[in-house]
Computed example of a mutant assay.
Amino acid sequence: MDIHPSYSALASVVERYPAHGGALFQTYNDLKLAQQWRDVEVKDLGQVCKRGGIQGRRPKTAADADSLLHVVPCALAESISMVWLKDVFEALGNPSSIYLAVVSDDSSIVYYKLSSGIVKPSI
Rank of each mutant, 00 (worst) to 15 (best):
69 L>F: 09
16 R>D: 07
66 D>N: 02
75 A>I: 09
121 P>W: 09
4 H>S: 05
46 G>M: 08
81 S>W: 10
74 C>M: 06
94 N>W: 15
7 Y>Q: 05
121 P>M: 08
13 V>D: 01
113 K>R: 15
94 N>Q: 13
80 I>A: 11
123 I>V: 14
71 V>T: 04
74 C>N: 02
37 W>A: 05
114 L>H: 13
37 W>R: 04
17 Y>M: 00
110 V>Y: 07
93 G>D: 12
114 L>F: 14
95 P>Q: 06
6 S>G: 10
114 L>A: 14
91 A>W: 07
12 S>T: 07
39 D>V: 03
112 Y>D: 12
88 V>E: 03
95 P>E: 02
69 L>C: 09
34 A>Y: 00
54 I>C: 10
44 D>G: 02
63 A>D: 13
25 F>M: 03
77 A>K: 15
64 D>V: 09
19 A>Q: 14
56 G>D: 10
102 V>R: 05
100 L>M: 14
83 V>Y: 10
15 E>N: 14
98 I>L: 10
6 S>N: 13
33 L>R: 15
20 H>S: 12
12 S>M: 04
103 V>C: 11
109 I>T: 13
17 Y>L: 02
68 L>D: 07
102 V>T: 02
46 G>Y: 06
111 Y>Q: 12
30 D>H: 15
27 T>G: 05
116 S>H: 13
77 A>F: 11
11 A>G: 00
114 L>R: 14
28 Y>W: 15
84 W>K: 06
54 I>D: 08
10 L>R: 02
78 E>R: 01
30 D>E: 15
57 R>S: 10
34 A>N: 12
44 D>I: 06
108 S>F: 06
95 P>R: 01
119 V>N: 09
21 G>C: 07
31 L>P: 05
45 L>A: 00
31 L>S: 06
74 C>L: 02
30 D>Q: 15
49 C>V: 10
111 Y>L: 13
95 P>C: 05
123 I>A: 13
20 H>P: 03
34 A>Q: 09
82 M>T: 12
37 W>M: 00
105 D>A: 12
70 H>E: 10
55 Q>P: 06
29 N>D: 11
83 V>I: 14
109 I>C: 09
72 V>F: 05
115 S>Y: 11
65 A>E: 04
120 K>E: 01
92 L>R: 06
100 L>K: 14
18 P>F: 04
14 V>F: 09
27 T>I: 03
87 D>R: 15
55 Q>G: 08
72 V>L: 09
42 V>E: 02
2 D>K: 00
7 Y>P: 02
86 K>I: 12
70 H>T: 07
101 A>Q: 04
4 H>G: 02
79 S>K: 15
106 D>L: 02
33 L>M: 15
47 Q>V: 06
94 N>M: 13
19 A>P: 03
18 P>S: 05
10 L>K: 01
16 R>W: 00
21 G>S: 07
112 Y>G: 10
64 D>Q: 11
116 S>Q: 15
115 S>G: 11
74 C>Y: 01
18 P>M: 08
123 I>T: 11
55 Q>I: 12
66 D>L: 07
122 S>H: 11
117 G>L: 12
13 V>M: 08
